[in-house]
């Protein structure tokens, strides 16, 4: 009898375990707030991970491509309808996540006859002024955390995610250049996928540098930049490692 509370709790706990198991091995994604914009990074094996949502909004996620696609499409539909019926300035990530994506993810997660979304993601909103940007870390169960500066990491293992994020926070600051930020983020990405220990036992910098370079060999590094200095309405600019001189 699924109506019995303890069975429901057990079912939800099982689903949490199931989703985490499905997300194991997913390639971590990251976003960093810099002085002139927001940098988003994902490393994929063919499936895209970094997407433009609206003029000042972007998404980077890991998980099942079909689920990322559903969320991406829902966010794009909502943003464009809002922009058309009101104004582009009225599209806000706070409302998009808080009133749209998060309740739907929570609903799917807790309705045990529905399939849960197998996703972990970061959504970014660029502001005109530094310090007012918004990064939202959105989880598969609909819970989310907001952050206005620094770095956000999304990975399948929460402990490693927290440690990698702390490590990157100590290295990446608003004045950090795009190239330096990407270099640090790729080193963190490599440490995460290789399950390297954080703290004092972290591999040396030369090891980390050669590590990510060999690990991305057959993969695609996807980079995007939400530019604060652009004069165009659409601030999303795809970047490549060669644009930054990193290959």
């Amino acid at each position: 009898m699924t109506e019995e509370p303890y069975r429901w709790l057990e079912a939800v706990a099982n689903r949490r375990e199931y989703v985490r198991d499905q997300l194991k091995g997913g390639s971590p994604v990251m976003a960093a707030v810099l002085k002139d914009g927001i940098l988003l990074l994902g490393v994929g094996g063919g499936q895209s991970k970094v997407f433009e949502l609206f003029d000042r909004h972007a998404l980077v996620g890991l998980g099942h491509p079909a689920d990322i696609e559903k969320i991406r499409q829902a966010a794009i539909d909502a943003a464009h309808t809002e922009a058309f019926t009101r104004a582009p300035e009225d599209v806000s990530l706070r409302r998009l996540v808080g009133f749209g994506l998060s309740p739907q993810l929570k609903n799917n997660f807790e309705q045990i006859y529905n399939a849960p979304f197998l996703v972990e993601m970061i959504l970014a909103e660029l502001a005109n002024e530094e310090g007012k940007d918004l990064l939202v870390r959105l989880h598969f169960d609909g819970s989310f955390q907001n952050q206005h500066s620094g770095v956000v990491v999304a990975a399948s293992q929460s402990t490693a995610e927290t440690e990698a994020q702390s490590w990157l926070q100590s290295l990446i600051h608003p004045q950090t250049s795009q190239v330096e930020a990407v270099e640090w983020m790729l080193q963190a990405w490599w440490c995460l996928i290789e399950n390297k220990p954080w703290g004092g036992e972290l591999p040396s910098e030369p090891e980390r540098q050669s590590g990510w370079r060999s690990a991305v060999g057959s993969k695609t590094v996807e980079l995007a930049w939400l530019s604060r200095t652009s004069k165009r309405a659409a601030r999303y600019e795809p970047l490549t490692l060669s644009d930054l001189g990193l290959v």
């Binding site: 433009e52 949502l53 609206f54 794009i76 539909d77 464009h80 922009a83 058309f84 659409a234």
Partner: peptide
């Protein structure tokens, strides 16, 4: 013009 602006950008973003 506003319909076209939104339509073209919507297509580009949604269909990549």
């Amino acid at each position: 013009a506003r319909v076209l602006q939104t339509s073209f950008e919507y297509y580009r973003r949604s269909q990549l």
